[in-house]
Computed example of a mutant assay.
Amino acid sequence: MSSTFIKAAEVWLPSEDGTLLEFGSGAFGPARRFAAISREMCFGRGEGLPGRAWDEGRPVLLPRFEGSNFRRVAAAHDAGLACAVALPLFVHDSLSSVLVIFCGPDAAADAASGLELWHHDARITSDMRLVDGAFFGANAQAFESASRDTYLPRGVGLPGAAWQRGEAVFLENLPAAPGRFLRAQEAAEAGLLRGLAIPAGSKLEDSHVVSFLADAKLPLARRIERWVPDAAGALLRRVYAFSELHGGASLIEATLPLSVSASATTGSIVEAWRSAMPAINDFPASEPGAPAAAATAIGSWALLAIPMVRRDEVVEVVALYL
C-alpha cells in the first residue's frame, strides 16, 4: 500500500508586510516538479487557491483545477493531484497561515474516495449543507447525489458531529454506522469505508467542516492520530490512532511534553499546538518519541500536524502520516 488519498500538503504564511502569502513548508513526496514550482511562488489576496481562501476568509474547495484560478494545473495533474482544499487559520481575527491539502484517486486500485466541504450559515438555515465535493470511484454518483441533497443538524452525521464537538471525528466503518453517518447505504454502494471530518477555521461567524472519505484500498493517510492536552496542561496525550498498515485502531496512549529545554527538539505536533499553525515534517523519523516510532513502523515519508483552533485556542492536534 504505497498510495494514500491525501497526497500532498503545503503551508502558506503572510509576508512580513502582510501583502502576500509566501511558501512556508510542504510535503510533496514524489511530486518533485510540483514542489519546485510551489516553493518559488507567492500569492496576493484573491490570487490562486491560497490567496482566495485568504481573501474570502473561509475554506475553499476545488473539486477540479480546470476553470478555476489555480495556477499550477499542469504540474498538479502530472503529480496525480485531482482536487484540493485551502484552510485559512485565524487567531484573534488575524490570518496566521493557509493550509492547502491536495488529494487524488488511485485509478489502478479502483478505489472509492471523496473530499467534501460543509457549511452552516445561521442566517439561512439551522443545518449544515454541502458546499462542494470531489467524489471518485465507479459507483460514486449515488453517494454524490445524496450528499448534495443532505441537510445535517448540529451533532448529526460525521460533519455534524465535528461541527458540534469542535474537534476531529474519525469513523472506521461508514456503512456500519447509519446512526452516526446518515449516508451509510450510499457509502456502502460506493465502496467508501473510512471518514475523517475536521472543523475548519473562518473569519466569518459561519461554521465549516472538511470531510475526507476513502476505502481500505486507498487510505486517507498511512496513519491518523488525535492529540489533546492533559488536565495539567503539561503534556499532549495521544488519545486515538488508526492505521491500515499497523493493525487498525489503537487506544494505546503516548505523551509529548509541552515544556522542553531550548536545546530539545519539540517535534511537529507540539509545534502545531504552540504556534496554532500547521506543521509539516518531510522526514518524520526525526520526530521525538512516539511519532518517530509510528512513522518508522509504517514507512511514513511526511507528517502533517493540524491544530484545531476554537475561540482562538488550540484544543487538539490532528496528526496525518503520509
Rank of each mutant, 00 (worst) to 15 (best):
A142C: 08
D110P: 00
F70L: 08
V156L: 12
L322Q: 01
R71H: 02
F5W: 05
F212I: 10
A108C: 05
P88S: 12
L115E: 03
A184H: 11
A122L: 07
P291W: 08
A216P: 01
E172S: 14
P63T: 09
I298A: 09
A74Q: 05
L62D: 13
G247S: 13
H120E: 06
L320C: 05
V239E: 09
A264Q: 14
P88V: 03
A162H: 08
L204Y: 01
F34I: 00
F34G: 00
D215R: 05
V169L: 01
F34C: 00
L303I: 05
A82Q: 06
R33F: 04
A290F: 07
A134M: 01
D149W: 04
W12M: 09
Y151H: 15
A8Q: 00
V318G: 04
F5A: 05
G29T: 00
A231C: 14
R222P: 05
A9S: 06
A264W: 07
T265N: 03
G267R: 00
G160F: 08
H92S: 14
E66D: 10
R154A: 01
G44L: 03
E66T: 14
R52S: 14
P153G: 02
L49K: 01
S96L: 09
A279K: 06
L171M: 09
P50G: 02
E205Y: 03
A138I: 08
A53E: 01
A197W: 03
L158G: 14
L115A: 10
E316F: 03
S25I: 01
E56G: 06
I6E: 13
D132C: 03
E16R: 15
F28L: 04
V156G: 07
A122K: 07
L320E: 08
S286Y: 02
H77L: 09
V169K: 00
F212E: 05
G18I: 05
R238D: 02
S211C: 14
N281R: 04
L95T: 01
L204M: 11
R222C: 07
S268G: 14
S15Q: 11
R274G: 13
S145M: 15
A231L: 13
F212Y: 14
F102I: 06
L196E: 11
L49V: 09
R311V: 12
R237G: 12
F170N: 02
F34W: 07
A140L: 00
A294I: 13
M277Q: 15
V228F: 02
D149A: 15
I252D: 09
E144K: 13
M308N: 12
S113V: 05
K203I: 03
C103D: 07
W301V: 15
A140Y: 02
L115T: 12
G48N: 10
R223T: 14
P284V: 10
S94K: 11
I269H: 04
W273F: 15
P105R: 15
G26W: 01
V91Q: 12
A184G: 11
R223I: 01
C42Q: 08
P88E: 11
